[in-house]
Design a protein around this nucleic acid. Structure first.
Lengths: 214, 214
DNA sequence: GAACCTCCTGACCACATGGTAGAGGTTCGG
DNA sequence: CCGAACCTCTACCATGTGGTCAGGAGGTTC
């Protein structure tokens, strides 16, 4: 529908100049942060604007509505996620090594940008309208991962099992790591690098036991 | 949507009168359902009342405020959760068998009352005020589980590892099973009994590999 | 200097929200 | 029959919400 006119700012292709982010970008990032932690319903445009030190109407100038903003946020998050995974998948490594590399990169992301995975969790709520949008973005990636796993299984590099369910378990675990900080605290653990490393090791062990033929 | 009527089929209870639930109870259950799926912020008292066919003010008569309602819902959910776990823990079985029994009962719960685990997820959002309330309720249970695991480790029945992190992983998995239906669909799987069974098997395999000395 | 553009803002609006006040209505003991 | 506690309702309110409108500041073009 209302395709946001891309304001000439598509020049941000090559030079990684640390240029001051445009207002539009600042809004996007703040919204991602807030949607990913406080939730969509829990975030008001007024709060967002106040936090950014701008007028709410400025948000609505750049994004036609709150829903449009969410859509943009989802698009951005999907792109970022895809980039992370693509990078990890670039290696031509096969078998277990590739999986391990992938898991490590996602855990790094979970640690650095927990709100990004928080957004996943938020958006994938049952009945969410943006769920479809997100999965449209991620579907090819998932498909690719699935085909890779299945090919590896067929080739005998990995043990046969339901690739999609394995992916799902890995997903749950990583998102859990990023979003269940409160639970962590409740169990009496302060989230540290170490605990994350342990959980990563656990996931790897699980994947290994599920996928690697002994 | 209908059939809020709990079958009350707790296995070993002596035929409690299936009395029509009081308005207060109906409110509590509807709120649990809605908070656990649509979220707290996403649930308005008006919607809730309309859905129940009562006036909003009736809700506010029984529960002083929306927050008070949430508190009551959290209390109720914690009680239900505790009851489920307690029942599974009643057996004097030791070692792996007990763990397996526990996992099975929780999966059963995840299948039957996904909104209950959805509420967990909702409430354990970073910064949630009710997180503390929930963990107050569940803390003794967690502690008990931890001590059990550690004792079993010390006794050599289970392999040594960080009991709390194992618990956390199990938690993530189960809550994921209950709440990530949209993700499941996005990956191209319709949630069925079978997929749940597979994921339960996976969790058990993981726990086994983490806990059982080969 | 005028016309035009992009970016941003203050003033304002319709409406949904959580919450209050008060008026019945029902039930039950005295 | 009376009152009292309990429950539910209609009517209303203050505030916060997403969103509209008109316009201003700064720059570029002719």
């Amino acid at each position: 529908m209302a395709a946001i006119v891309d304001p000439a700012g598509s020049a941000a292709s090559d030079s990684p100049a640390p240029a001051a982010p445009s207002t539009k970008e600042r809004i996007l990032h703040a919204a991602l942060e807030s949607f990913g932690t406080t939730g969509f319903d829990g975030t008001s445009l007024d709060d967002l604007a106040r936090h950014l030190g701008i007028a709410k109407q400025t948000i609505l100038y750049h994004y036609a509505s709150k829903d449009a903003l969410l859509a943009a946020v989802v698009d951005h998050a999907a792109a970022e996620l895809t980039a992370t995974l693509e990078e990890a998948l670039r290696s031509e490594e096969l078998g277990w090594g590739r999986i391990e590399r992938l898991v490590r990169s996602v855990f790094r992301l979970a640690l650095r940008r927990p709100e990004l995975l928080g957004l996943l969790r938020e958006v994938s709520r049952p009945g969410s309208a943006s769920a479809a949008r997100l999965s449209d973005h991620l579907e090819p990636l998932v498909e690719r991962a699935r085909l890779f796993l299945e090919a590896e299984m067929a080739a005998g590099h990995l043990r046969s099992s339901d690739a999609r369910l394995v992916l799902l378990s890995a997903y749950s675990t990583v998102v859990g790591v990023a979003t269940e900080v409160e639970v962590l605290k409740a169990v009496g653990i302060e989230p540290t690098l170490r605990t994350t490393a342990v959980r990563r090791r656990e996931l790897l062990r699980f994947l290994r036991s599920a996928l690697v033929a002994d």
